[in-house]
Design a binder for these strands. Structure first.
Length: 365
DNA sequence: AAAGCGGGGCC
DNA sequence: GGCCCAGCTTT
């Protein structure tokens, strides 16, 4: 059984819609992106909310919108300023893609976010979920917006055991939503599904006893809500040993480096660092050789400062941190800078290197 | 279809 | 430690 029609057969679509939307009207949270339906605001919120909790997003959203109030403001902003506004939020390609897409809208669509699935889906960083979310919330178009919440809710309500990690399963849920969605109020329907997933139909212990659609839930009827959704476990993270150095010159300035424009933490700044084969063998020497070979810097790498661990979704860094000094001062490369602690605050750093920045302050103090 | 891509909160 | 979060892009 893998067609949505098979699951919707005999399902009380009308009653489900009503109970869901009525609950949402009464119980929706007061969130900053619900202030109005400005497509740009909705868009920014949806990008920020990808794989990121509401509570985390709220302060970022407010700050971002005060820095870049309109689509035009974001289109014309310096990328470094935009990355700085995103600093700490993670998945930085989201905001680089967002700015690329916003420029596209400014140039190709006269600054008006397109309102068709075909056009909006062409924009960088706008996938099936985000397209449906913007279209339904900003424009009232009845398109599905299937995220993790919606898959969890529907897997339980319709008793679907397909692995929600598979692309094929998302399409199954999208087909189901095309049938289930309210044509009168698609915005409330989609947001209600997500709100229900966030507040009631939660991953661990769903609050079925106070659920507005309990009467329509097949998993609850059979006491199987805790078996769902089905999701295959993913492989564990890879461990990588690193060595990094807080390098100061004779003026007391620190050396920082801009990462490449693609890949992990693209275009963010960092302290000089290298992967090392084995811990405790020759990190200091390796760093010294690297600084000389890569940038022509003759440095003395001194005391070990600390050991920093940082976990990503797919890997873990174990960073041996050292301090060092050198007498270089003129560096022309645009991806390399000597800066004071104060100047450093204007550059976007990933959290792993914010930890190093903090150590730099302590070492200096 | 699978892997790469961040960071934080909760258990 | 593992899991999950208003996912998308690249391979």
């Amino acid at each position: 059984m893998n067609r949505s029609e098979d699951y919707i057969q005999d399902f009380p679509v009308q009653g489900f819609q009503q109970d869901l939307i009525n609950w949402y009207i009464e119980n929706q949270r007061d969130l900053p992106w619900r202030l109005n339906q400005d497509p740009y605001r909705v868009w920014v919120s949806e990008i920020m909310l990808q794989q990121t909790r509401v509570d985390t997003v709220i302060p970022y959203f407010n700050r971002f919108l005060s820095l870049f109030p309109t689509l035009k403001d974001l289109a014309e902003a310096e990328e470094e300023k935009v990355l700085k506004a995103w600093e700490g939020l993670g998945y930085y390609s989201r905001v680089r893609n967002l700015q690329t897409a916003v420029k596209e809208v400014a140039e190709q669509y006269g600054g008006i976010v397109p309102d068709t699935a075909e056009e909006i889906s062409k924009l960088k960083g706008v996938g099936p979920y985000t397209a449906g979310a913007i279209l339904s919330i900003a424009y009232g178009v009845p398109e599905p917006a299937v995220d993790g919440n919606v898959m969890r809710v529907l897997s339980r309500v319709l008793l679907i055991y397909d692995d929600i990690g598979k692309a094929k399963t998302r399409i199954l849920f999208e087909d189901a939503v095309r049938t289930l969605i309210s044509k009168e109020d698609p915005s409330s329907f989609n947001q209600a599904m997500m709100e229900l997933g966030a507040l009631i139909c939660t991953p661990k212990s769903p609050a079925c006893l106070i659920c507005p659609v309990q009467d329509h839930c097949r998993a609850f009827d059979q006491g199987r809500q805790k078996e769902l959704p089905v999701k295959e476990k993913k492989t564990k993270v890879k461990h990588v040993d690193m060595a990094a150095v807080i390098l100061r010159n004779h003026e007391g300035k620190f050396l920082i480096h801009k990462r490449p424009k693609e890949g992990l933490l693209a275009n963010l700044w960092e302290f000089p660092n290298i992967p090392v084969k084995k811990r405790g063998v020759s990190e200091k020497e390796d760093l010294k050789v690297f600084l000389q070979a890569e940038w022509g810097i003759s440095a003395a790498v001194g005391d070990h400062v600390s050991n920093i661990e940082h976990v990503f979704s797919h890997l873990k860094w174990d960073i041996q941190l050292f301090e060092g000094h050198c007498s270089n001062k003129t560096i022309e490369a645009c991806d390399l800078k000597w800066v004071t602690l104060e100047e450093m605050e204007t550059y976007p750093f990933p959290v792993s290197h914010q930890k190093i920045k903090k150590m730099a302050k302590e070492v200096t103090a």
